[in-house]
């Protein structure tokens, strides 16, 4: 299925969970936040929450800023 991750169209396997996605991206150890279709997903829901075709996912972290 197709999902949009941080603005880029990506192909992922059906029923991918957020936890799996984060692991695939190598972001497990990082302080991040995830939105699906502009809804913030609580960390404890990452293992259960599955992506659907067409979902817009945002994954953010902290970088240097003033």
């Amino acid at each position: 299925m197709h999902v949009i991750i941080n603005g880029d169209l990506q192909v992922v396997h059906d029923g991918l969970t957020i936890a799996e996605l984060i692991a695939q991206l190598g972001l497990n150890q990082r302080r991040i936040a995830v939105e699906i279709n502009r809804e913030i997903i609580a960390r404890e829901h990452y293992p259960q929450r599955r992506l659907n075709d067409g979902d817009a996912v945002e994954i953010v972290h902290f970088i240097g800023g003033g």
Binding site: L25, R30, R31, I32, A33, V60, H61, F62, I63, G65
Partner: peptide, 24 residues
């Protein structure tokens, strides 16, 4: 210390992160 919130670069997330250096 102030920090900014930005999209992770998913094609190259990088090995290091700011908060590994400036520990909360």
């Amino acid at each position: 210390v102030t920090v900014a919130v930005r999209r992770v670069n998913i094609t190259d997330p990088g090995k290091e992160n700011l908060l590994d250096f400036l520990k909360p």
